[in-house]
Design a protein around this nucleic acid. Structure first.
Lengths: 347, 347
DNA sequence: CGGCTGTGTTGAAACGATTCAACAATCGCA
DNA sequence: TGCGATTGTTGAATCGTTTCAACACAGCCG
């Protein structure tokens, strides 16, 4: 029951505690025969290093804290995966907390991470945290904002250029010869939605004769996509747009379902469809959906690297804002590579 | 830069360190005026308790470790949410790691959690861990298996009765008058798949004239569901089953897509469809899919409670296997509540 | 007044790993 | 042989919190 400590290992191996510690942390300073004996003792006693004691001495832990907005959103699980992979390479760990868009839960995870003295925090913020983060920074704990451009001054961040993403989507539609584009998304209060729309408008403005119609929705869900899809279906064919850009893939799935349900709107013949995020389901939809991919895994990886870089440069004014370019992934819903006969889609 | 400790707080408040500790942990033993002064000192200095020191003294941390098989599977995010909610009520934290079905990652998280001296571990295991878990148990660290019945002797577990789930699904189909049921799932090596099929067979056996056809697939994915769906679509109508039970919702979605694509198989008129897991997408599919719900959040919550119960009963032989009943959720794909005109589904 | 109870407070010991100045042993070289 | 350099090893001090035996003090009673 009594826990096994370095002292026990030292006794068993016939060396001092300092030597055991050196075997664990600086083996190059220890005679190889001694190393062997110590490891033997460790194995036979089943010794497991007590991380609390180690980090008490070290002053900081070997873990990075990650707080995500929504653990069920594939985007964030990919970010987390990227962070874990990067951390693994560095021999550190990632502790993941899910704020679930609740400022109170977010606070609790910040408390926990502060008490744990994590080496840094990756955060996609919900609540108002300026004062709090200011304090962490003054303590020398790096904070990296994920998926939000530097709305908080003085913190590093990783994000995606959503304006560029919007451009990519609509330029693709325009290149297909489409001219009457509908944008389905909302609420426009959301930075991401506003940026995507802005990019779409920029692309439209560059092509004479192209026009855009904005169809606002209160939330980015399958249901609201479907509702808009049904209202579009009811239009006469000369009122129908020939292309739709959905602010995310869930909305695109809803639109597609409405179009498919009666088969009265053919995708992509009558309406070409582009979504955003490139979630796994975009590829698995009835008609695979063209989408804008965010390099989510790379974002997580980069965020971890930014934390470590700030740590290595303690006095540093090293605050970086890494903005990733989005990538267009063309699939059947905009007439890209189609597995089966497109004609079959009209049902 | 120098970290602020209880000693600093004590000086500032003009009391001893013992008193500061008591304010933090046993305020009922401290004079209320003293409490006030100490809190004032804490606030003005920005003191944050060092959890490493605290748990070094305590011998164990205030966190429970959770290792999930697949963080992108909604089932596990729900389990995690349940565990976090339960932990919150108890004033402890949950550290979540994603093994991603990789035994090596699973090992690394176990190492981490052992070094952190977590109070307990919730685990949906991938690799062979008997020896390892045995050691943890002998150290008095409770281990609770999630979503696996006690294939490892002597550990508590939470799981769902998948045999019962299979029964529910097929009994429902039989009650609708269907008699020719197809089961789509695999690999049968998977305990869950085998159990669901077993339950289905039991239900079939109780109704004279009912028969079941097993259509095996190598993986529970949308793609494989779609492939089977296409082969069914090609059958003549008297060879077609009048009901399909899919081993999970992803497979059901694939089947549905194949049926809808040409509209040659009408759901639910020609074929009634039931899935398993009740993922969010089941409700958001073109035709909402009837499914078997697992109480995933409750499972997470219960697992945390089992850990705490084992801790309170140190010598205890308290090893419980909690098996939850699955729940049938009826939707349009089996002719349940349908929003719009069912006839419209035939396209 | 002496003894007793109850309420607050104190400060040193303990938790277990890491660090580092000091020491020991061995070797090379003049 | 003597001296410095090199390589290994030692063990006490340290990190910040909690615990606990000991103490101080006030109030009460016989």
């Amino acid at each position: 029951m009594a826990s096994i400590s370095v002292r026990d290992v030292a006794n068993r191996a016939g060396v001092s505690v300092g030597t055991v510690s050196n075997v664990l942390n600086k083996p190059e300073k220890v005679n190889s025969e001694t190393i062997r004996r110590v490891h033997e003792a460790i194995d036979s006693l089943g010794f497991v290093r007590n991380d609390a004691a180690r980090q008490l001495r070290a002053g900081r832990s070997r873990a990075i804290g990650l707080i995500v907005l929504d653990a069920s959103n594939p985007f964030f699980t990919d970010v987390a995966r990227g962070a874990e992979n990067a951390a693994q390479d560095l021999g550190i760990a990632v502790l993941t907390g899910n704020s679930d868009q609740d400022p109170e839960r977010e606070q609790r995870y910040l408390d926990l991470f502060e008490e744990q003295r994590v080496r840094g925090i990756l955060l996609s913020p919900v609540g108002e945290l300026t004062a709090r983060l200011e304090r962490m920074r003054s303590r020398g704990v790096p904070v990296v904002l994920v998926d939000r451009r530097a709305d908080l001054e003085g913190f590093s961040s990783v994000s995606v250029d959503d304006i560029q993403g919007g451009r990519l989507a609509v330029e693709h539609l325009l290149q297909l010869g489409r001219r009457r584009v509908a944008f389905v998304g909302g609420p426009v209060g959301l930075q991401q939605v506003a940026d995507r729309l802005e990019g779409a408008r920029q692309a439209i403005a560059e092509v004479p004769g192209a026009e855009i119609e904005v169809l606002p929705i209160p939330q980015l869900t399958v249901e609201h996509g479907r509702l808009v899809g049904e209202s579009l279906r009811a239009r006469s064919s000369d009122e129908l747009p020939d292309a739709v850009f959905a602010a995310n893939d869930l909305v695109a799935v809803g639109l597609l379902q409405a179009f498919m349900l009666t088969g009265s709107v053919r995708v992509p013949e009558q309406v070409a469809l582009v979504g955003y995020d490139d979630i796994a389901f975009a590829n698995a939809a009835v008609v695979p959906i063209t989408s804008i991919r965010q390099p989510s895994e790379l974002m997580g990886r980069t965020a971890v690297e930014l934390v470590e870089r700030e740590l290595e440069d303690p006095e540093g004014a090293v605050r970086e804002h890494v903005v990733f370019p989005p990538v267009l992934v063309v699939r059947a819903s905009s007439g890209g590579a189609i597995g089966s006969d497109p004609g079959a889609l009209s049902a």
